[in-house]
Amino acid sequence: MKDRYDHENIYWIPILIIFVFLLPLILKGISFSYKYYLFVLNLAGIYIILNVGLDLLSGFTGLVSLGHAAFLAVGAYTSAIMVDQLGVPFSLSLILSPVIVGLFGFIIGFPALRISGMYLGLTTMGFGFIVKRIIISFRDWTQGSAGLEVSSPVLFGYTIKSDLDNYYLIYTFVIVAIIIGRRIATSKIGRSFMAIRDSEQAAEASGINLSQYKMLAFFISGLFAGFAGVLFAHTSSFISTDHFDILLSIYFIIMVLVGGASSIYGAVLGSLFIVLLDNLFVPLIEDQIQLLFNTQAGDIQSLIFGLIMFLFIIFQPMGLYGMWLKMRIYWKLFPFNPRQRFT
C-alpha cells in the first residue's frame, strides 16, 4: 500500500534547499549587518534540529519533556570534553556524542515506562535541574559554572571558523534532520508513536510494544538533541551552564507548540519564528519598554514568549503549520468555503 505521503508535492524541496544555500549571499547583498543575521540563523538552525527531535517525542509520542535543555547540555559538554580534553577528532565526536545523548535519553526514558502525562513532564524537569547540577559538580572536566571554551570544528582538515562556514555546516545537518524526521514520522515507527499518544491501551492491544517504542522515542529525541548540542558547543565556542536553564526547556516546548505539535514542519516553523522574533523583533521594542520600566532584557523576552504561547493555545491550538494548512485548504476550495470549517 502506498502511503499518503507519496502523493505529496516534493518538487519545491530542491528549490528550498537551493534557497537555503543562497540565503547568506542574498543577505550579504542586501544588508550590512548580515553577520548578525547569520548568527541568528545559526542559532535557529540548531534549535530546529533539537525541536524536530522534541516534536517526535512530545508531539508524536505525547511524552512531554520539560528538560530538553539538559539533553542539549549533555551533548554540548560531551563533545567539548571529548574533542578538547580527550583529543577525539570532531568528525568522530559528531557521531559519538549524539549516541551518548541518546543513551542518556534511555536513562530519562526509563521512568517514562511507569508514569505518563504531567508526571513525566515533572520528572524531565527534575532531570534538567539534576543534570545542570551534575555538570557544575564535575569541575575538573567542565570548570563548573565558569563555563568552558570550545575549539572550532575541524572537518577533513578544514577549520570551520566564520559564521558563514558555521551556517553551511549547521544547515546541512538541518536539512538532513528534517528529512530523517519526516521519514521517521511517516514510517511504521512514527505511526506507532502516534498510536501511543492517542491511546496507550489501544496501541498495546494492536501489538505495539509500549516500553520498546517509548524508549525508542527517547533515544531518537536524544540523538537529535545530541547533534544540536555538538553543533551548539563548537559553533558558539563557549558554553556555560547558565545557558541550559529550565526556561530554555520551556522555550523549546513553546517553539514546538507555536509551530504546531506533531508535524515536523511545525517544529521547523516554530523554531524559526521564535528565534527570529527573539533576536530581530524584541531588540526593536526593548528600548521603548526599558524607558517605561526599569527592567532586564530577559524579562521582556519571557513576557513576549509567554504571551505568544498563551495566545496561540487559546486562538490557534494547531500552531503556525495548522494556520498554513487551513489557508491551503481555503484556497483549494476557494469559491466554496464553508466558513465553519476554518474557525
Binding site: N294, T295, Q296, G306, L307, I313
Partner: peptide
C-alpha cells in the same frame, strides 16, 4: 501549557513592575 505560559508572564510582569 497555558498555566506554564501564565507563570512566565506573571514572573516577567512582576519583575518589570517591581524592578530588578
Amino acid at each position: 501549557m497555558a498555566t506554564l505560559s501564565l507563570a512566565i508572564i506573571m514572573r516577567a510582569l512582576v519583575a518589570m513592575i517591581a524592578g530588578p
